[in-house]
Each structure stands twice: as structure tokens, then as C-alpha cells.
């Protein structure tokens, strides 16, 4: 009959198990995948990420040097991060917050497209 009673009494005197969310937040774990972010100055516009994306959320335009992502379509699988040869896409721990309109985030690259050096990875 009283299997639950001990737990209930314990909870009565213990601290709350929940957090007061907006005031107190738990830091995401170091491996958490929040959203993808672009380091556009490294991008060579090879279109590999666009081809690899299972959700078709990336649009890369070589002519206008733009790289855009629809964060509400992105499933944060990390395929683009894996295939990027210049590590121009990174996984951020911060997840994408709410917004009023569903619009792709467009990043624009200034200046000439960088030359691709396969060994550049090791240097950095």
C-alpha cells in the first residue's frame, strides 16, 4: 500500500529535481550537436556539403559566393562537417533558437575564393 510513501516524503524535503529554466541553464555536454556554423572565409565552394546534406537545407552559390543554411530544416546530422575538405563548417554547441520567420541564414564571402590546398588541414 505504501510503496510510494517513502519516495514522496523524501521529495517533500529534498531540493526540486527541476531547474528554473530561463534563469538557470545546464551547459550542454561538450559533444552536443547544436547547430552548424560556417567559417565562410575558408569556403572554396566545392558544393560537397550541398550534395551530402540529407535534408537539402544547404544552398551554395559559387557565382555569388554565398552559403546559406535553413536552420529549421537542418537535422544536425553532421554530414556536411564530415565532408568539408577545408573545415569551413563547424558544429556549434549552441542550438538554434526560435524566430518569427523561417528564413535561410545566408553568409557571403568577400574577395577571391581561396585556393584549395589538400595539406592546409595539417598546417592549421
Amino acid at each position: 500500500m505504501f510503496e510510494m510513501l517513502a519516495t514522496v516524503l523524501q521529495n517533500l524535503v529534498a531540493k526540486p529535481a527541476t531547474r528554473e529554466y530561463p534563469a538557470k541553464r545546464r551547459e550542454p555536454f561538450p559533444t552536443y550537436r547544436g547547430r552548424i556554423e560556417s567559417l565562410i572565409e575558408r569556403c572554396i565552394f566545392c558544393l560537397k556539403c550541398q550534395a551530402a546534406c540529407p535534408a537539402n537545407c544547404l544552398v551554395v552559390n559559387r557565382k555569388e559566393q554565398t552559403w546559406s543554411v535553413d536552420q529549421y530544416r537542418c537535422i544536425v546530422c553532421g554530414m556536411c562537417v564530415e565532408v568539408c575538405p577545408t573545415e569551413a563548417i563547424v558544429m556549434s554547441r549552441i542550438y538554434h533558437g526560435p524566430a518569427r520567420h523561417r528564413e535561410p541564414i545566408v553568409t557571403h564571402q568577400e574577395g577571391p575564393i581561396p585556393k584549395f590546398n589538400p595539406r592546409a588541414k595539417d598546417v592549421n
Binding site: 550542454p28 552536443y32 537535422i75 544536425v76 546530422c77
Partner: peptide, 12 residues
């Protein structure tokens, strides 16, 4: 799950 896989439900 979050600690080992990086996401809570759709872990991939």
C-alpha cells in the same frame, strides 16, 4: 544518450 551521442533523440 546526450553525453555519448551528442543528441537526445535523433542521435544519428
Amino acid at each position: 544518450i546526450e553525453f555519448t551521442e551528442g543528441s537526445r533523440i535523433m542521435t544519428g
